[in-house]
C-alpha cells in the first residue's frame, strides 16, 4: 500500500494532500489544470521535495521530513510515465526498455504483452503517439516497479487510442498487482480507470469536484443531444450553476 501525506508551499497556494493507494488498485488524481496534481505525483516519486510530510510503500519509508528520511528517486523502485518525453529519442524501443531491465527475456515479454514487438528496432520519432506510450509503459514496468506513477500519459492521444490504452492499463493492474497512481483531467478516463478517484483543486483534496464536473459534463452532453433533437430540451441550463439544477428534469424523455 502506498501512502502519502504531504505539504508543499507553491507560489500561488499550498499543496496539502493525504492519499492511500492499495496494491492492485488504481488511484486517479484528477482536477483542474494547475491544481497541483503533477506536483503531488512528483513529490511521491521523489523528483520534488515536500516541505513537510511522509511517503511510504508498505513498511518502506521513502520520505519523512520529521525523521530526515529522503530516499533518492533512483532507489525507490518506481515506474513513471510522463505525458511526453517518456522514451529516450536516441535509443530504439528495445534498447529503451532494456535501459530499465537487465533481463532481455523480460524486454521481449513486455513488448509482446503490449503488442509492439514488431517495433523493437524502431526509434521513438518514427512511432505513433500510442505506440510511444505503450513503449513507455513497457519501460516503466521493465524494472519490475513496486509502484507505478502515470502523469497524464494518454492526454495527447486520440479517443480510440486512449480507450485502448485504458484497457491495457487495467490489464497491467491485474498482472502486476502494484499501487498505480494515474493523473488525468479527462473525466471519462478517470471514471473508467479509477478504483478511487481523488480530485485536487487549488492544492487541496476536494471531494465534491469530480461529481460537480460530471454533472457539468452531463449537462453539456444534454445540450448536444437537445440540438440533435434526441431529447426535447434542457431546462434551467443558463443562469443556474450546472450542479444546482434538478437532475430528474434533465433526463431524456422516454419514447412511448
Amino acid at each position: 500500500m502506498l501512502t502519502a501525506c504531504l505539504v508543499r508551499r507553491l507560489p500561488h497556494f499550498t499543496l496539502e494532500a493525504d492519499i492511500v493507494c492499495p496494491a492492485g488498485k488504481i488511484l486517479v488524481l484528477t482536477g483542474p489544470s494547475g491544481s497541483g496534481k503533477t506536483t503531488l505525483l512528483r513529490l511521491i516519486a521523489g523528483l520534488d521535495t515536500p516541505h513537510q510530510g511522509r511517503v511510504a510503500l508498505g513498511e518502506t519509508v521513502w520520505c519523512d521530513t520529521d525523521r530526515g528520511i529522503a530516499v533518492p528517486v533512483r532507489r525507490r523502485g518506481i515506474g513513471l510515465v510522463f505525458q511526453d518525453a517518456s522514451l529516450f529519442p536516441h535509443l530504439t524501443l528495445a534498447r529503451n526498455v532494456a535501459y530499465a531491465a537487465a533481463d532481455p527475456a523480460l524486454v521481449t515479454e513486455l513488448l509482446g504483452l503490449f503488442g509492439i514487438s514488431h517495433l523493437a528496432d524502431a526509434y521513438p520519432a518514427t512511432m505513433s503517439g500510442g505506440e510511444r506510450q505503450r513503449g513507455a509503459l513497457c519501460q516503466a514496468l521493465a524494472r519490475r516497479p513496486r509502484a507505478l506513477l502515470l502523469d497524464e500519459p494518454f492526454s495527447a492521444l486520440d479517443a480510440a487510442t486512449r480507450l485502448a490504452l485504458c484497457g491495457e492499463l487495467l490489464r497491467v493492474r491485474e498482472l502486476f498487482a502494484i499501487p498505480i497512481i494515474h493523473v488525468t483531467h479527462d473525466l471519462a478516463e478517470a471514471a473508467r480507470l479509477g478504483d478511487t478517484i481523488v480530485a485536487v483543486n487549488n492544492g487541496r483534496l476536494d471531494p465534491d469536484w469530480f461529481e460537480a464536473q460530471l454533472d457539468l459534463h452531463l449537462r453539456e452532453q444534454q445540450v448536444l443531444l437537445a440540438r440533435r433533437g434526441i431529447i426535447e430540451a434542457v431546462p434551467n441550463l443558463c443562469g443556474a450553476g450546472p450542479w444546482s439544477g434538478n437532475r430528474e428534469s434533465t433526463r431524456p424523455r422516454q419514447s412511448s
Partner: peptide, 16 residues
C-alpha cells in the same frame, strides 16, 4: 528543454 525530463526519467529508472 526535453533533456531535464530525460534526466529525471533515467534517475527514476535507477541510474546514477
Amino acid at each position: 528543454g526535453d533533456l531535464l525530463r530525460l534526466i529525471e526519467l533515467s534517475s527514476v529508472l535507477g541510474k546514477s
